[in-house]
Design a protein around this nucleic acid. Sequence first.
DNA 1: TGCCAGGCCCTCTTTAGGGCCTT
Length: 329
Amino acid sequence: MKTGSMIFSLLHVPRFRIQSLANCWGETFHSFSTTCGNNSNVRLLGSRIYGLQGGQRKKWTRPITTNIEGKGSTKSKSIKHEILSETILANATVNVNKTQLDKSQEIQYCDIQQEIAENKDLSSYTVIVFDIETTGFSRENERIIEIALRDLQGGENSTFQTLVNPQCKVPNSHIHGITTHMVNKPGVPRMEDLIPILLQYVRSREKPGGDVIFVAHNARCFDVPFIINELRRYSVEIPPNWLFLDTLPLARELIKSGGTTLSSTSLAALRDLYGIKVDGSAHRAMVDVNALSLILSRLTSDLKLTLSDLVKKSFTESDIINSKNKKKN
DNA sequence: TGCCAGGCCCTCTTTAGGGCCTT
């Protein structure tokens, strides 16, 4: 198993508008590789954001990066975003080691993506695995401090990760290693700054007229309600083509089906079951996203689930709200 | 003084309670 190669990547954000952004952030990247039980070598590329720098309110320049795993993308590129008033202009240059990039093309996260490619009925779906780190468990009282996404179709800009300035203290640094000092400074985007960027990023991954399935572990009870609350806090509606899939019920289903040594449905237990090694700190968003990408692949294989099955198991924002209302009544 | 997360699942249950999962 080889690890440690450095891959630069970028977030190619097309020109778009944003109300107020006063941030500057950069990323360094690390790679992650693992070998699954069926001898299929899988290599993951994660990212981490450090070196956050302050910016000015109305005019600033910032590097935004995600990773490149593009097919045949051996050109060097770099990205430089200039924020002038309310407009972001994107230009890019990133240095990518060709050998490393060739290796990165071996990535095959999910049979799901192959199924999407082969099935016309499913070709409109985009599957994005995501994870958030927060200041605690309460969706009402706590805030998101890190978010990471991975589009399983891969290619350029298939990942997105950033710290988020919660504008409050981080009381649980012992969990994820993210401290108040790391996020409470001008260089880190606040949620209100990040939302338009996030929406733009997801739009850039969508297929025309297609739906996006967001996958997370314990999505129904934790990640999705958190996202819904954060968007609502800034009067932003969840796009109607967003679906959500929770891998926790899939893990329960696997235990019920028997024939597995899995005794807990936690992400850590699933990682252990499938021999997925963590490169970096577990409980950091992109590390968990990378692990869950592999877990999703193995879970769907073990449970013999197709993408159609996953679509049936997915839920919408309305489902969460309706179930909450039912409970109230 | 009162609140402290909340939804799902299991069982010694169903007019309930407790454990698990997420940070």
